Computed example of a mutant assay.
Amino acid sequence: MTISMEQKQEYYEALVKKDSTYDGIFFAGIKTTGIFCHPTCTARKPKFENCQFYLTAEEALLAGFRPCKICHPMSFPHDIPEEVKQLVTAVEEHPEKRWQESDFRELGLHSATARRKFKTVYGMTFVQYARSRRMGLAFKEIENGGKVIDQQVATGYESASGFNDAFTKIMGNPAKKTAIKVLNANFISTPIGQMMSISDEEYIYLLEFADRRGLEREIERLRLKLNARIIPGQNKTNELLEQQLGEYFKKERTTFDVPLFRMGTPFQKKVWQILEEIPKGEVWSYKDIAEKLGNKNKVRAVGNANGANQLAIIIPCHRVIKTNGELGGYGGGLERKKYLLALEK
């Protein structure tokens, strides 16, 4: 959720005063050092303009910040088991890595035990932590361009290779000459969190919440399918998207007319076409959509196609619910689904 300026001032005051009543309420990302802390950290306090505030540790990680070694914000006030310290250190040494069972064995760790302890201390799975750290580095590149690598090396890292790798493995190498497409990645702020768009001068290819599980794979599939490279940059298509999303959240717009590139199977595209026919303020069930396709037994397939939608909000998969009236799943999270349905009513 968006943090208001009033809340930011309140959180900054708590940070300066080391107010323990705010521990666990927010996390402070420090732009000048690239770390994030909990409110009672004993490190020197930054200026207000050098702080970014987050409600969860995952948000701070996705923004490209790493945990402070002084206050250990993710585990406070717990003691940190040695296995967990090892894992965090290993992630920082190779932030671009996708972890396998063999990696745990190389560290001399029993993976199930280490994962369980990690979840107990940090409140998130190790896979979630490693993914958020990896994605955060790539996202930071998008926001700041190549300068972030120099900043990270200057604040304690020996090599920029991990940061280059984290970006390249997800977005592709922008210097590679064989690409037939160059796509631009941007972030769009909304009242329910940051969204990421991928576009060019002709189409919007992807619009997802930045913390969506599986987003990394979505981006890679898109890039590989189109033989594209993704680099930070603005274009007229994304400018139009930002404008229309802003109008949507202000209740000034009910439909979108940005040009979309729908990458999917013929069946998925049929489902998405029906999704776009659902009137604002209404919900249809998976069964309703299956029947419109002419086969009421396609409910599961409709659900899978709904989940494969890469153009959140614009193709309104949030308007689909279970036959029994329950909300069902949503890639952006159920709270966001509730918010969008309430907004549209």
Score class of each variant (00 low, 15 high):
262 R>D: 12
117 K>L: 12
106 E>A: 13
250 K>Y: 11
274 I>F: 12
80 I>P: 00
135 M>N: 07
180 I>G: 09
337 K>H: 10
203 Y>G: 02
37 C>F: 03
134 R>K: 13
234 Q>H: 13
157 Y>S: 15
108 G>H: 12
227 N>A: 11
222 L>G: 08
302 V>I: 14
82 E>P: 05
87 L>H: 01
257 D>F: 06
221 R>H: 13
232 P>S: 14
143 E>K: 06
25 I>S: 08
314 I>C: 04
160 A>G: 15
324 N>C: 07
185 A>C: 06
319 R>F: 05
2 T>P: 01
301 A>N: 09
303 G>Q: 06
321 I>L: 04
269 K>L: 13
47 K>L: 07
178 T>D: 14
24 G>D: 06
206 L>V: 10
193 G>P: 02
142 I>W: 01
277 E>H: 09
86 Q>D: 11
182 V>P: 03
307 G>E: 04
79 D>H: 14
255 T>M: 07
262 R>Q: 15
57 A>E: 05
137 L>G: 02
184 N>W: 08
142 I>Y: 04
150 D>K: 10
310 Q>W: 15
229 R>F: 06
148 V>F: 07
60 A>G: 02
10 E>F: 05
310 Q>I: 11
282 E>V: 08
240 L>W: 12
270 K>M: 11
130 A>N: 04
218 E>I: 13
221 R>Y: 14
4 S>D: 04
225 K>P: 00
297 N>L: 08
38 H>M: 03
109 L>K: 01
35 I>C: 04
128 Q>G: 09
116 R>C: 04
299 V>D: 03
124 M>H: 06
343 L>K: 02
119 K>S: 10
91 V>Y: 00
291 E>T: 02
325 G>K: 08
190 T>F: 05
303 G>E: 10
116 R>H: 12
118 F>Q: 01
249 F>I: 14
151 Q>A: 15
4 S>A: 08
42 T>M: 09
93 E>M: 09
67 P>A: 15
226 L>P: 00
260 L>D: 01
300 R>Q: 14
278 I>L: 08
43 A>E: 13
250 K>S: 14
4 S>P: 01
113 T>R: 11
343 L>T: 03
117 K>M: 10
316 P>R: 08
141 E>C: 11
81 P>V: 15
225 K>S: 12
320 V>K: 02
228 A>Q: 06
93 E>L: 10
22 Y>G: 03
177 K>P: 01
137 L>S: 04
285 S>E: 01
40 T>Y: 03
182 V>Y: 09
33 T>Y: 01
313 I>K: 00
11 Y>K: 01
281 G>T: 08
183 L>K: 02
159 S>Y: 15
46 P>K: 08
290 A>P: 00
132 S>Q: 10
80 I>N: 03
184 N>Y: 15
275 L>M: 10
121 V>Q: 02
32 T>N: 06
97 K>H: 09
308 A>L: 04
213 R>K: 15
188 I>P: 00
87 L>T: 02
328 G>E: 05
238 N>A: 12
66 R>I: 15
122 Y>E: 03
14 A>Q: 02
